[in-house]
Amino acid sequence: MSTLSETPRTDSPETGKRLNKTLVLDAISFFARFWMAYTWIKAGISKLDAHMAVTQNITAYEIFTPQWSDFLARLIGPLEIAGGVLLLLGIFLRTSAKVSIGVLTLFIIGVAQAWLRGLELDCGCFDPTATTTNYQLEYATTIGRDLFYIALSAWTVHRPFKKWAIYTP
């Protein structure tokens, strides 16, 4: 009498479904990690040579003093680039994504308070020198976009794409 092995068949329909599901989840994780890396790097680079415009954008929110606005304007671009590089290289993926969620939440709070207070300003997110005339649409679009970015960052916290990552504890 022969005994059959208890190992699952690799050609079963169930295995194929699991493999397809894994590929889809990996694709979402890949997109979330690398899109957020691109987004942070692009936002940071746009601020590097626009110190005065970034300072004016931050001051327009009427949250910080001019001195703090100047300090944040010097800091925000390099920090956004650093966050993007960490995601790109796969260094502390979950931690980097958690910081991303925190920063995006602060951005949403800043835009929402400006909207509620009736301030007319451009967020300065990707082009500090840009101007807009439809502030209501700009605020809603910015908050919606940042919520999407929070979802991508949360996905990276939940299921980071570790392939090509340098260090993910």
Rank of each mutant, 00 (worst) to 15 (best):
L19Q: 14
L19C: 07
L19F: 14
N20M: 15
N20D: 15
T22L: 10
L23T: 12
L23A: 15
L25G: 01
L25V: 08
I28D: 02
I28G: 03
S29I: 13
F30G: 00
F30N: 10
A32V: 11
R33Q: 05
W35T: 15
A37V: 05
T39Y: 15
I41R: 09
K42V: 12
A43V: 00
A43W: 02
G44C: 03
G44L: 08
I45Y: 14
I45D: 07
I45M: 15
K47F: 04
D49N: 12
A50L: 10
A50P: 07
H51M: 12
M52R: 02
M52E: 08
M52L: 06
A53T: 00
V54P: 11
V54W: 05
T55Y: 05
T55Q: 07
Q56K: 06
Q56R: 05
N57W: 01
N57D: 09
I58D: 05
T59A: 13
T59E: 15
A60S: 13
F64M: 14
P66Y: 05
Q67L: 13
S69Y: 04
F71Y: 14
I76N: 01
G77H: 11
L79C: 06
L79S: 10
E80N: 01
E80K: 00
I81N: 00
A82V: 11
A82E: 04
G83F: 02
G83N: 04
G83P: 04
V85K: 00
L87C: 07
L88R: 03
G90H: 04
I91S: 05
F92P: 09
L93Y: 09
R94M: 07
T95W: 11
S96I: 03
K98S: 10
V103K: 03
L104G: 15
L106H: 11
I108V: 14
I108K: 11
I108D: 12
G110T: 02
V111K: 04
V111A: 03
A112G: 00
Q113Y: 07
W115L: 00
R117L: 11
R117W: 06
L119I: 09
L119E: 10
L119T: 04
D122R: 07
G124W: 00
G124F: 00
G124V: 03
C125N: 09
C125L: 08
F126C: 12
F126M: 14
P128I: 05
T129V: 14
T129M: 13
T129Q: 15
A130V: 06
A130P: 03
A130S: 11
T132N: 14
T133Q: 15
N134G: 06
Y135W: 08
Y135Q: 00
Y135I: 04
Q136A: 06
Q136K: 02
L137F: 13
L137H: 12
A140D: 01
T141F: 03
T141P: 00
T141Y: 02
I143R: 11
R145Q: 04
R145T: 01
D146P: 14
D146Q: 15
L147R: 03
F148H: 03
Y149H: 13
L152S: 08
L152I: 11
S153V: 08
A154K: 05
A154I: 07
W155E: 12
V157D: 02
V157Y: 00
P160R: 04
P160L: 04
F161G: 09
K162S: 05
W164D: 00
A165G: 02
A165Q: 02
A165M: 05
I166S: 12
Y167L: 14
Y167W: 13
